[in-house]
Amino acid sequence: MSSTVFVLNAGSSSLKYQLVDPGTAEVHASGTVERIGEAGGVRDHEAAVREALADIAGKPAPVAVGHRVVHGGDRFDRATVVTPEVEHAIDELAALAPLHNPANLQGIRAAQAVLDVPQVAVFDTAFHRTIPAAAATYAIPAGLAERYQVRRYGFHGTSHQYVSRKAAEFLGIPLESSKLIVLHLGNGASACAVDGGVSVDTSMGMTPLEGLVMGTRSGDIDPAALFHLHRQAGLGFEELETMLNRESGLKGLTGKGDMRDVQAAAAAGDEQAEAALAVYRHRIRRYVGAYMAQLGGLDAIVFTAGVGENNSLLRRRTLARLEHFGVHVDPDRNEVASKEPRRISPDGSPVAVLVVPTNEELEIARQTAAVL
């Protein structure tokens, strides 16, 4: 009997899909439908879902659909079967994620129209609902924060949850007593302190903009810098928002948003690119140090996602100044490429350094199956 889950990640103009068995982790099909609603593309999200279904025809029929939903606010702390009430909540939470939740909801409604199986929403923010108030609270007027839901929510939750579990398994220690720092480094990037399998702090905040330097996002910045740019450069609200999300980060510092291009430029002697990489590494070290203090001990630092999994030079140079904390990188192990979890620190190091490939689709499928 089939036990596959159809995992959907709906964006405003694209639909990523994967048909996966949550028990065996076997992927039966995967792909992306692009240019939804654009010239040369499919008409709408329902048409995109139908195209994805055509691709999986003949494969094991899905018993459920697992949807990635970016923002669950303070309402959802776990994967949830989609009901009219859940749809309404996702719609209301679009105020916190206007670029993501509306598209996620379109994907849910499109799948409902063409598939008569349970639909489950898996929230990026859910894993971080355990963050204590001291870490989640911004020091602004409390009434305003409560009324407009201003707090740290955190993102990349499915990745951090999957990777922290795999890291504990690899180390052979109970997840319930593990202390880990997970570095999800891709075009979007975030750090997470995981204590006993529970998120206790994370670098992304109310939105995915806060925290580490990313491909096109600034990460941390003094808010007064934006007031200054408004007054002195005449930049309006929308211009500033666009700048911070799409024109900053590595792209803002170098003109290149892809880490591979920036690193190639640095290797060729581009001083601007090397300076940008120094900023990138410095920001990561700042969070690693802070999370060491918050955790009160550390079993492992874990790299994951595209940059974290594949960029050995970045890993080595980022951790190079942490030896006095018991963090060491074995140069030979660090250069080994693999799709399996691996240790890149020497045997016997006080703090293990791991590379653990993430698998958000499998995590979504497993959470979907667990709900059902």
Rank of each mutant, 00 (worst) to 15 (best):
T207R: 02
G197Y: 02
T4C: 15
D222W: 02
P22D: 05
N245R: 04
V279G: 08
G41V: 08
R78T: 14
P118M: 01
G41D: 08
D332M: 06
E169V: 06
A121V: 13
G257V: 03
N187T: 10
I56G: 02
H88Q: 15
D91K: 11
Q272D: 11
H28P: 08
I108G: 00
I364K: 04
G188N: 03
L212N: 06
P346K: 10
T202R: 00
Y138H: 02
G236C: 01
H160I: 08
A142E: 14
T24W: 02
L212D: 06
P102F: 08
E360K: 13
K179F: 02
S14G: 07
V20K: 12
T207K: 01
V288Y: 07
E239D: 15
A113F: 11
R286I: 04
F76M: 04
K339W: 09
A57V: 09
F127S: 02
Q119M: 01
A111D: 07
E46D: 11
V288F: 03
R129A: 15
A134T: 15
R283Q: 09
P22S: 05
V302C: 09
A95H: 07
G297R: 04
R321Y: 14
L253V: 10
R109Q: 14
A126D: 05
G234Y: 13
G215E: 01
A273S: 09
Q149P: 04
A305P: 06
A64P: 13
A10D: 12
R129E: 08
E335M: 12
K59N: 07
V336D: 12
I173R: 09
A369H: 05
D21S: 14
S178H: 01
G172P: 11
M292F: 07
V122Y: 13
I344H: 02
L322D: 10
V182K: 02
E309Q: 04
D222V: 06
Q232W: 10
D258P: 06
